[in-house]
Design a protein around this nucleic acid. Structure first.
Length: 722
DNA sequence: GTAGCCTTGATG
DNA sequence: CATCAAGGCTAC
């Protein structure tokens, strides 16, 4: 039985998909080779030919590799469809050494991401790493030669927060810290400070190997506490500037989950741990990434850092700080870059430069793109290098877009929520010195704040909500009161980078389509490119790999155009009256009328508008995408039951998400699902238009194959759509 | 574009 | 009138 008859698809399409699926296994540079080259090499790919020759070449290569047997292709498909998500990591500029280390630590992609984020991994830099592995803790020792890091590890086990200090170290810390020691952050900060001090001393004396943990601990006891005071200092911004500054970037608990810092906490190194989290019996391990701002070697990445593992119980942890407290806010470093805070700006205490940066960015509607993995660590010395990550940090730390006045009126008091609260909580000047830490502050991602943002928000707000929700989950504890994000949705979200346009050749986006044919060609190229990405995305979806390859292909054939339509709506959710086909090109209904597909664009605009009104967030968007894909009713499926099971799990996850995150929008789940039939109508219309306007000379790419297949399926009444 | 300083104007 | 959080100005 031929491949065609067996699967009901043409050999060319099958090969195209196979090529996409197998490309990463066939080449070392998977991303480049997996995608059709658009304008990447103009000598090879004319704008209108869409790499047809390359595609054919690759198909032939693939054919020869597999000896063109159906079994070979299928097995290759299967093999690669089941490729673990870990391949994601290899696509994001992460060194293989680091990946190996991470992979051996934890297989979950979340851990990988958290770990990468934790380490601020980069391929840049060229400083040697001084390694010191003192313990066999969960923290891996990174010996990546290209990393600008000095990684030391210390584990202090069974450090319990008891009423009475249990050992010299704790006593020392207790004596030196100006904060109450019943907070996790105090302990971490104090230990971190000790470790930083100790490490700095160690560096100076070029000590490296053969030092026992107890010796190091003892050394740290001998250090003075002046570093500690920089972070816990309660009344001296000037002092903080004059001493080495320690910034704790991340807390990672023993599950590899990131414990995020409070959004509205300008001080940035205190956080609230639920009293129920951890206990004397089950101590929690946190990993802390430190930075000494005075020891900058690489302006882009962590100038000096240490991975320190602290194991302790937080059973006595208590509420810590009041972020709105002016004294504390002014004495802490800027939560965005660590510079000196100049006042309360746009919702949080920041330095003057971050205030100005935020203002300029919002007022001038600037959009930045991080050239790296959007995980640059921002400090006062490198903050100019990556405005994208700086702005993200501004938002994550709680700077409010709505604090920027659209009418640019000067003076007066602002009335947005955060500012009002801040003013209300302001401590009278005469009382400031007396004021100690106050009530519990809202955690980053507290539901109320998020949903408020979501209700009022722009897309950036919604994205932020997603980020916050995403991160918040990692620190959820039973009493946090933060709705959890179903794991399935998080897993799906982790695959979004596969669909990113970040790797699109810049020139392909810059070539403005001046006339109809150019725009048409441009759209076809984009669609083609995104189709390949869709296939790669699908194969990595959780549980999708368990579906037979034939069924996977059927599902993809069934939904590809709906998926593209949905992504167009999502892209356009904040551009009313425009469908954003890319970051640079938008289509209005008027233009669409001129081009002959007004109906499609108007329908897309309507859906985008409905999504906007529903405040659909990123998690809901990705869930809808997978729901479009996982349709057990597609004719010809061999294992519809498996697919139905997956569908049920996903709908449950989405329902749980919408009801917990948007309790005030009881019908959100249903409203979201109601948009899917309309997407199908749109995709039908679009395909109809496209197939009728296909120039006969158009090269036979994946898109054309799918279009032709659709047409054929409808025409001959075949049970398969392709 | 950045960032430090200045001006403005509502508020208590 | 002091405060302070906005926007504006301008040297770099």
């Amino acid at each position: 039985m031929s491949v065609h008859s067996e699967l009901g698809i043409s050999p060319a399409l099958l090969q195209a998909i196979a090529q996409t699926l197998t490309s990463s296994a066939l080449t070392t540079s998977s991303r480049d080779s997996a995608l059709p080259t658009i304008a990447k090499d103009k000598s090879q790919a004319a704008p209108h030919s869409l790499g047809s020759h390359q595609l054919k070449d690759r198909i032939e290569a693939s054919m020869s590799l597999n000896k063109s047997s159906a079994g070979g292709v299928i097995s290759h498909l299967l093999q690669n469809l089941n490729e673990p998500v870990a391949s994601l990591i290899t696509q994001s500029n992460v060194s293989s050494h680091a990946i190996q280390s991470l992979a051996s630590t934890e297989n979950s992609s979340i851990m990988s991401q958290a770990g990468l984020s934790l380490l601020g991994l980069s391929s840049s830099g060229a400083t040697t790493t001084s390694g010191l592995n003192l313990t066999n803790t969960s923290v891996k020792h990174f010996t990546q030669p290209s990393m600008v890091m000095s990684n030391d590890e210390i584990t202090i086990t069974n450090f319990l927060l008891k009423d009475e200090p249990s050992d010299d170290l704790e006593q020392s810390i207790l004596q030196q810290s100006s904060q109450p020691m019943n907070t996790v952050s105090s302990v971490l900060t104090a230990f971190a400070s000790q470790h930083m001090k100790e490490s700095l001393t160690k560096k100076t004396h070029k000590q490296s190997h053969g030092v026992s943990a107890s010796q190091l601990q003892q050394q740290s006891l001998d250090c003075s506490a002046d570093i500690i005071s920089t972070n816990n200092d309660s009344d001296g911004a000037n002092e903080a500037r004059s001493q080495p500054q320690i910034i704790i970037y991340r807390y990672i608990n023993s599950n590899g989950q990131e414990v995020v810092l409070p959004a509205s906490s300008p001080q940035g190194n205190d956080f609230v741990v639920s009293e129920s989290e951890g206990s004397s019996d089950t101590p929690t391990t946190y990993k802390v990434l430190l930075q000494s701002a005075d020891d900058v070697r690489d302006s882009n990445h962590v100038p000096y850092s240490s991975n320190v593992t602290y194991t302790f119980s937080s059973s006595n942890a208590a509420p810590v700080t009041d972020s709105q407290n002016t004294v504390d806010g002014m004495s802490r470093p800027c939560p965005v870059c660590g510079d000196k805070v100049s006042g309360y700006h746009y919702g949080i205490f920041t330095c003057e430069s971050c205030k100005g940066f935020f203002k300029r960015t919002v007022q001038n509607k600037k959009t930045f793109v991080c050239p790296k993995a959007s995980d640059c660590i921002i400090n006062s010395l490198n903050r100019k290098k990556c405005p994208a990550c700086r702005f993200k940090q501004c938002l994550v730390m709680g700077m409010k877009l709505e604090a920027i006045r659209q009418d640019r009126t000067r003076g007066g008091r602002s009335s947005y929520d955060g500012c009002v609260t801040h003013l209300k909580n302001r401590v009278p000047t005469f009382d400031k010195k007396l004021k100690r830490v106050g009530n519990r502050i809202p955690l980053l991602g507290d539901v109320s704040d998020q949903s408020q943002d979501a209700r009022e928000g722009t897309k950036s707000h919604r994205h932020l909500v997603a980020i916050l929700n995403h991160d918040t989950h990692r620190q959820t504890s039973p009493n946090c009161g933060t709705p959890q994000i179903p794991e399935l949705l998080r897993d799906i979200m982790n695959l979004e980078p596969l669909l990113s346009d970040d790797d699109l050749p810049a020139e392909s986006l810059m070539e403005a389509p001046f006339h109809e044919q150019a725009l048409y060609s441009y759209m076809m190229q984009l669609a083609e490119l995104r189709l390949y990405k869709l296939v790669r995305w699908a194969r990595n979806l959780p549980q999708f790999g368990a579906i037979s390859t034939d069924d996977q292909i059927l599902l993809l054939q069934n939904c590809w155009s709906e998926l593209i339509a949905l992504s167009l709506c999502w892209r356009s959710i904040d551009t009313p009256n425009q469908i954003s086909i890319s970051t640079t090109h938008h289509i209005t209904a008027e233009w669409a009328q001129h081009l002959g597909f007004e109906d499609v664009v108007v329908r897309l605009l309507n859906i985008a508008e409905k999504f906007r009104k529903l405040y659909m967030d990123q998690f809901e968007y990705v869930a809808l995408k997978v729901l479009l894909l996982i349709t057990p009713d597609v004719k010809g499926l061999k294992e519809p039951r498996k697919i139905r099971d997956f569908q049920e799990k996903l709908t449950e996850a989405l329902l749980a998400y919408t009801t917990s995150h948007y309790p005030h929008m009881k019908d959100k789940f249903g409203q979201l699902l109601l948009r899917l039939p309309e997407l199908s109508r749109i995709s039908f219309l679009s395909k109809d238009i496209l197939i009728k306007s296909l120039p006969p000379s158009l090269p036979c790419g994946l898109l054309v194959e799918l279009l032709k297949g659709d047409n054929k399926g409808e025409g001959d009444g075949s049970s398969l759509s392709l």
